[in-house]
């Protein structure tokens, strides 16, 4: 039986006569994950404008198999955190992250997600996204150019494909039930405003980096 010449691709030649590829299922899944990242359409601040440029014409992130922005966190594998995180937003962002299915990846975009950036001294600014989420890749810049973001995401894809996974975690601020917190002057003051079962995030600013 003759084979359809269209099937005689370069790839097939490389594999030789066997139509089968032997690989570990884990490596195969890593390759799949890395090659088709769905990202969350998620904007915070200035960096989100450059992020939009990265998605759009000219830079076209989709060339690298990572350019389909999803509006729902439940369909996304990758969250790019594009901007300054302030105290009011951090619990919401943590919730968005929690809604993403595993395995999930985080790219911190810009100086604000590294340390608070130019707003580091602000009374309301969380000093870097690592205080809230584990981060895989940091892209520095204020804001990073689209090329830099593309580089960061391609680096992340490389790491996913090679099975290297080591998101950096610091001791993060967690969402806790108000009733579970240790007694403190502040907690007593707020006791009549917040229900026992409400989730809260407690910022100890003096411990921030």
């Amino acid at each position: 039986m003759t084979t359809d010449p269209r099937l005689n691709s370069k790839l097939r030649e490389a594999f030789g006569s066997s139509p089968f590829i032997l690989t570990k299922f884990d490596s195969f899944m890593d390759w799949v994950r890395g090659s088709s990242l769905f990202l969350l359409q998620f904007g915070i601040a200035c960096c989100s404008i450059e992020m939009m440029h990265t998605f759009a014409v000219k830079h076209d992130l989709d060339r690298f198999g990572a350019g389909v922005p999803r509006a729902s966190p439940r369909q996304a594998d990758l969250i790019i955190v594009p901007g300054t995180i302030v105290s009011k937003f951090a619990p919401r962002m943590r919730r968005v992250y929690d809604q993403m299915p595993e395995p999930k990846f985080v790219v911190g975009m810009g100086s604000c997600t590294i340390s608070g950036g130019p707003f580091h001294k602000g009374y309301n600014v969380v000093k870097g996204v690592e205080e809230i989420l584990p981060v895989d890749i940091h892209v520095p810049g204020c804001p990073p150019r689209p090329e830099a973001l593309v580089y960061g995401i391609v680096k992340l894809q490389e790491r996913i494909i090679n099975g290297q996974r080591s998101p950096v975690t610091v001791d993060p601020y967690e969402l806790e039930k108000f009733g579970d917190l240790d007694t403190h002057e502040l907690i007593e003051q707020l006791a009549d405003q917040i229900a026992e079962n409400d989730l809260v995030m407690r910022y100890n600013w003096s411990d921030s980096p």
Binding site: P91, Y123, L186, V200, M201
Partner: peptide, 27 residues
């Protein structure tokens, strides 16, 4: 601009930036 549970008024002169704050997330 700040959450309802914020303590103090940050641009007043005696505000202490280092005191802890609690932010709620109702669900």
């Amino acid at each position: 601009l700040l959450p309802d549970t914020w303590q103090g008024h940050p641009l007043s002169l005696d505000y202490d930036q280092n005191k802890p704050q609690l932010i709620t997330l109702q669900e």
